[in-house]
């Protein structure tokens, strides 16, 4: 049986009196890519932040790599990329990565390796502010890869990227998963679903489905994930 990197039970988050996540049960398996799909505003980011421990939860439990989410021991083992790139605009790509490498205490060689992984080798000495939006989010991704995390949580990492690069990044995610990491990727683009080993379909703070893409299509009889999503919403209504 595949080991679970994340196990959430009856996870609830309420913000300002409004339920954002309602009683979620899900797992993220090690060694695979799990896609978190759903429309904008359905709670994907909140779910991811609950997993990395920056979101205070109001009910249920989240266990990450056999620890309570937010446990200090996880700070070396979890990589997170937020939706907006969290890097320093006024530093170069390499300066950004060197700084985060020092914070993580990883060797300098990791910097060049991660720059290469996100295909920014030609831009390593450029100031981040001068890069395009897609390049900037790749810098942010490179930072998350520095510590070779056991769990990688990526919030819409492929938005605004050209299709070639998107395919490359997805194969990077799969490579990391094959090396044993658990990868949780969110997207609001349903056509990225087919690239995941497992899918969590989300709507309005609840999970509509937790299945492999093929099984999901078989169960709903839909030709693609977008239609599967619609049929699940219809079935629930």
């Amino acid at each position: 049986m595949m080991k679970n990197a994340v196990v959430a039970r009856r996870l609830c988050v309420t913000r300002g009196g409004n339920p954002v996540l309602r009683d979620l049960d899900f797992e993220v398996a090690a060694g695979s890519v799990t896609g978190l799909l759903g429309p904008s505003g359905c709670g994907k980011t909140t779910l991811m932040r609950a997993v990395i421990g920056t979101q205070r939860i109001t009910g249920g439990t989240v266990e990450v790599l056999d620890e309570r989410a937010a446990a200090p021991a996880l700070r070396h083992r979890v990589g997170y990329v937020s939706q907006a790139p969290s890097v320093y605009d006024d530093l170069t790509v390499r300066e950004n990565l060197r700084f985060f490498a020092r914070v993580l205490g990883v060797p300098r060689e990791r910097v060049d390796a991660c720059v290469a992984t996100v295909a920014l080798g030609d831009h390593a000495d450029r100031v981040v502010a001068r890069l395009s939006g897609g390049q900037r989010s790749r810098v942010s991704l490179a930072v998350a890869l520095l510590g070779e995390p056991d769990l990688l949580v990526l919030d819409e990492p492929t938005v605004g990227l050209d299709p070639v690069l998107r395919v490359e990044l997805w194969s990077t995610f799969h490579r990391l998963a094959e090396a044993g990491a658990a990868v949780l990727v969110s997207s609001h683009v349903m056509d990225e679903a087919a690239r995941c080993d497992r899918l969590l379909l989300m709507r309005e703070g609840t999970l509509l489905a937790d299945d492999a893409p093929a099984a999901l299509l078989r169960r709903t009889g839909a030709p693609d994930v977008e239609h599967a999503f619609l049929s699940l919403v219809g079935a629930g209504a």
């Binding site: 700070r75 979890v78 997170y80 907006a84 790139p85 969290s86 890097v87 985060f100 510590g147």
Partner: peptide, 12 residues
Amino acid sequence: SGTLERLLVMPM
């Protein structure tokens, strides 16, 4: 910019 949040989920 989110860099503080990022640092605080690192061993900082």
